[in-house]
Write a protein that binds this DNA or RNA. Structure first.
Length: 982
RNA sequence: GGGGGGUUAGCUCAGCGGUAGAGCACCUGCCUUACAAGCAGGGGGUCGAAGGUUCGAAUCCCUCACCUCCCA
């Protein structure tokens, strides 16, 4: 199984690599390290723009100013000692004050965002020597507000961009917004309604002015929110779906598709939203299970007193019936061919037709045919040449054609009246409860009304196979992979896309009509006029606009200047990665891939990371009506952007939704606090040491070798996890590295070295170097905190001249591979420390009480003994668990509990120990050990295990039996010493 | 009706053939001059159910149950 899984992921990686080579981009390996990582090709001149205020910080951002003042007053209130030597002014003129004991993200986040913007670190040159990396933002609704889903996706996009940028890529994250036709128009219409008017009263032109004004008002929100999140977008390339360039792309695409016969206009049945007063696409219809009634209605036959029964959930559509259909092989009804039925209430005679779509098992096996108001009936009507009869209008009211009694009634009213009349006429055979699926307009929530109308359609059936092939052949990769099946399924059964909308806010369809009603599709009115052979002002443009998704579908290339062959397009297209929610896989991703392949011949992106849905702590979908919506900005305000980012990245695991609990953010804010304090400690203790750029393990002591090896190891793992979009695992690695390895173990071990208690070389240098690397590793996830701290590390300039954003991303360090004995020694040290700490608690010795450690030699344990008794080990044990002396002899009688460790016997004795070990506890442990021993022995007694299991596993089993046996002996001894029977 | 995902410690989730982990929560002791947003220690799980494959299954296969999403 391992082989299979391994082979799978290996193959994926190979595919990617092959692809990368084929295209000369998206290489898996970072490019050769820039020599100095100083200002490279990307670096823009920042000029010696002197900042008289001494800091990029508290610029014009109002919050920054306020916080600045608050902080200042705090500082003056608390009397501080004279600045330490390391306090100074960094290269960038950022005044570095001594670190505040209080960790407060608000004190620096806005400052760094500003610094980055002013430094233009995220502006990408094109062309560039460096390999391109590009992510297009899924453009949020321009007048909307970022929700948690945006925060999640933006975090991941930023994380990837920062990571690749640090690896030396020309990493572009292109920001922008979407005009979001319906959503935005609705908001303005609502505003108009409050003013007692509507768009029709205003007229198209003035209405659009209002729309643009509204857009202008809200546009800054998205920018501000992304800034606060730490987004490293290239704002010089920001795009809006309705701006001139993108509009041109839309017209171009439309005209081309039309000329290829893939866009056409026609009268078809569409999903009509009476709530929005426009047609909507199949995707915008949400199916819901609804309990309705099923009415069985008798239709008398013409000429005679026979009658047939037809079941329907929508009796009001009877008024538009034009036929009754039966299955051609249905023996029950074959004889009806050529006869006619009288539609009750309407009184019209309609023919019988035979059609294969009729389900014989449903109801009586007969269906009424209403081509104007049912998609299936529409098809039947076309097959049998039956003209539809429209009895419901665009507002959801009955038309004149429905008859005088019904005209003007709503659908519901008409239904009631039809049912009443049927009942009165004795034609209602039966009425029953009926649960079925009904389409609702996703946006307005009203029941979709199928209507026949003239709309524009895009035939994507020819593009779909290429999109399918792109995935199959690896040009496109979906992550998690499992979405591939959904992709296949949807694209295999794809239907024409209704692209016209009866709205005003959007790209008006580039089609003009002359006075004779002839249609001319062209890039502009002049061209249309030339084609029509008439004057431009005699043409009328189609009043409808295009589905918003039509322009979104072009986003990956229209934003780069398509249809022109621009430098940007050549540099950044196809893009590298798309990060978006699985919910718009069809709405957007599939359409981008189809249009991308169609117009550029390339998949618009190589990989798509599909995120789950952000839910609340209880796993409920966030919704305004439920009131469980969390606002990213408020969370940033409370916990800091880095904690929000870390939380979201940590929770993003493949194929899962994200239950977001604000408490969790508090936990990751604490993580920030931990890093803050660790850095504060390091800075106060490292003396004159500086970050080393060329550190090797040579001449270093065990703890230093160990932590550097850990950093190197984690760097390798994090890199792989980012590559695989496993942000959750990457975050865990980083969390563990900082908190457990660096803070809990290394810093404690470094203390004696820093204090000169132990003659260890270069401890300060290693501490700073580890911090430098670890902060760089963490930077893509927590950009603000890492910049704030990294800038304070003495010697950081040797790594990157201006900012951590452009410092190289650490990878595994070949020179940081320690001798194999290191791992054993560290393990031994940790076990002894654990024993001493456990005993301290068990024996109720005071936390600070000195401990003496007895180590009894054992056969074959010479190496372990040498290590534990070496002069460099005592300071470590003292720092980690308060051991003051080590004796190389059998433990004294006072040692309550003797522990087997690597062939030695170890026993700590404490000053002022109050209690012995609880015999009950020892007994419980003994039972546990004995059970484990029995299990382990049974395993070894199984000949099949011995012959078939790998050697290493068998050896491991043997070792564990030995250890358990020793443990049992010692426990028994301890019990005896405690005066208790086992 | 078809398909996807899920079911592991109180909660949220990793692990996906070698005998169970993390974070948070909980309990105990500590304000030990980096951090009480902290430190140290501890308790807690027959890995949804039943079969099968295997020396060995939380992990692979089959069946079932429940939860969720998508499509019809």
């Amino acid at each position: 199984m391992a082989r299979r899984a391994g082979a799978g992921s290996g193959r994926d990686r190979q595919n990617r690599q092959r692809l990368a080579l084929g295209r000369g981009r998206r290489a898996d390996r970072p490019p050769a390290r820039r020599a100095d990582r100083g200002p490279g090709g990307a670096r823009r001149r920042l000029g010696g723009r002197a900042r008289p205020g001494g800091g990029p910080a508290q610029g014009s951002h109002p919050r920054a100013r306020v916080l600045g003042r608050v902080r200042q007053s705090c500082a003056t209130r608390t009397a501080r000692p004279a600045p330490r030597p390391w306090v100074g002014v960094s290269a960038r003129g950022v005044a570095m004050s001594e670190m505040d004991k209080r960790f407060d993200p608000r004190s620096y986040e806005a400052r760094w965002q500003r610094f980055w913007a002013e430094g233009e670190f995220f502006v990408c040159p094109a062309p560039s020597e460096r390999p391109p990396y590009c992510i297009m933002i899924p453009p949020p609704n321009v007048t909307g507000k970022l929700h948690m889903g945006h925060a999640l996706q933006s975090t991941l996009q930023d994380l990837l961009t920062r990571w690749r940028r640090m690896q030396g890529y020309n990493a572009l994250w292109l920001p922008g917004t979407d005009h979001a036709g319906i959503a935005t128009q609705l908001m303005v219409e609502r505003e108009l309604a409050r003013e007692g008017t509507d768009r029709h009263a205003l007229g198209r032109e003035r209405f659009l002015e209002r729309m643009w004004r509204w857009k202008g008002q809200y546009h800054g929100n998205i920018r501000r929110q992304l800034d606060r999140l730490g987004a490293s977008c290239d704002w010089t390339r920001e795009r809006f779906t309705l701006d001139e360039g993108l509009s041109r792309a839309v017209r171009e695409a439309f005209v081309r598709l039309h000329s290829e016969g893939l866009i056409y206009r026609g009268e078809y049945i569409v999903n009509w939203s009476t709530g929005l007063d426009t047609a909507i696409s199949d995707l915008e219809v949400e199916m819901r299970s609804v309990e309705d009634r099923l009415w069985h209605v008798a239709y008398p036959l013409e000429g005679g007193d026979e009658r047939v029964v037809v079941a329907t959930t929508r009796p009001e559509t009877m008024l538009g019936d034009v036929a009754i259909a039966y299955h051609p092989e249905d023996e029950r009804y074959r004889h009806l061919a050529g006869r006619r039925a009288l539609v009750p209430v309407a009184g019209r005679a309609v023919p019988f037709v035979a059609d294969e779509v009729v389900e014989r098992e449903f109801g009586s096996g007969l269906v009424k045919v209403t081509p104007a108001h049912d998609p299936a009936d529409f098809e039947i009507g076309r097959r049998h040449g039956l003209a539809g009869l429209q009895v419901i209008d665009r507002r959801g009211r009955m038309t004149e054609a429905a008859g005088e009694r019904f005209a003007g009634l709503t659908v519901d009213e008409a239904r009631d009246r039809v049912v009443a009349e049927l009942r009165a006429a004795g034609l209602l055979v039966r009425e029953e409860r009926y649960v079925h699926n009904v389409g609702f307009c996703q946006r307005s929530g009203v029941r979709v009304q199928p209507l026949v109308s003239t709309q524009w359609f895009c035939d994507v059936s020819g593009m779909a196979p290429r999109a399918l092939a792109a995935l199959r052949e690896g040009e496109l990769e979906l992550v998690p992979e499992s979405w591939g099946k959904t992709w296949e399924h949807w694209l295999s059964g794809i239907r024409p896309w209704c692209i016209s909308r009866q709205l005003w806010w959007g790209h008006q369809i580039p089609a003009w009509y002359d006075e004779a009603g002839r249609c001319f599709v062209a890039l502009d009115r002049e061209e249309a006029a030339r084609a029509a052979g008439t004057a431009p002002d005699r043409l009328t443009q189609d009043p409808d606009v295009l589905d918003t998704w039509f322009s979104s579908a072009l986003w990956p290339f229209s934003t780069l200047g398509w249809p022109d062959d621009t430098v940007d397009l050549r540099t950044f297209y196809p893009t590298s990665v798309l990060v978006t929610g699985f919910d718009i896989l069809f709405f957007w991703v599939a359409r981008m891939v189809m249009t991308g392949l169609h117009f550029t011949g390339r998949s618009p992106f190589a990989r798509v990371h599909l995120t789950g849905l952000v839910r609340d702590a209880e796993g409920q979908k966030m919704s305004k009506t439920k009131g469980n919506v969390l606002d990213p900005e408020e969370l940033i305000e409370e916990y800091g952007a880095d904690a929000v980012r870390f939380t979201l990245a940590q929770l993003d695991s493949p194929g899962r939704d994200i239950p977001l609990d604000a408490e969790r953010m508090a936990g990751y804010r604490a993580f920030g606090n931990k890093i803050w304090n660790a850095t504060r400690f390091a800075l106060s203790r490292v003396g004159e040491a500086r970050v080393a750029s060329d550190l090797t393990l040579e001449g270093l002591a065990l703890p230093e070798r160990w932590i550097l090896a850990r950093v190197s190891e984690v760097a390798g793992r994090v890199d792989r996890h980012f590559e695989d979009f496993r942000f959750d695992l990457a975050c865990s690695e980083l969390y563990h590295l900082f908190w457990s390895d660096f803070c809990d173990w290394y810093i404690e071990m470094a203390k004696p070295g820093l204090d000169g208690e132990s003659a260890r070389p270069r401890v300060g240098e290693v501490t700073l170097t580890v911090l430098d690397r670890a902060l760089r590793l963490l930077h893509p996830v927590m950009p603000f905190l890492t910049e704030e701290l990294w800038q304070r590390l003495p010697g950081h300039e040797s790594v990157s001249a201006r900012t951590i954003c452009l410092a190289p991303y650490p990878g595994p360090e070949a020179g940081w591979t320690p001798p194999e004995s290191d791992a054993e020694q560290i393990e031994l040290l940790r076990r002894v420390v654990a024993i001493v700490r456990n005993e301290r608690a068990d024996q109720k010795a005071p936390p600070r009480a000195a401990a003496e450690l007895w180590i009894a030699p054992g056969a074959g344990a010479e190496a372990a003994e040498r290590f534990l008794l070496s002069p460099s080990t005592l300071p470590l044990l003292r720092a980690l668990c308060g051991v003051e002396r080590i004796h190389r002899e059998e433990p004294p009688a006072g040692a309550l509990h003797r522990h087997p460790v690597s062939g030695l016997v170890v026993a700590p004795v404490f000053e002022h120990a109050e209690g012995g070990v609880d015999p009950a506890r020892l007994r419980a442990q003994l039972v546990e050990v004995e059970e484990a021993l029995t299990r382990a022995r049974a395993r070894l007694e199984n000949p099949a295990f011995l012959s078939k299991a790998p050697e290493a596993v068998v050896a491991g089993a043997r070792r564990s039996v030995e250890e358990l046996a020793q443990k049992r002996t010692r426990l028994a001894e301890s019990l005896a010493a405690a005066g208790a029977a086992p």
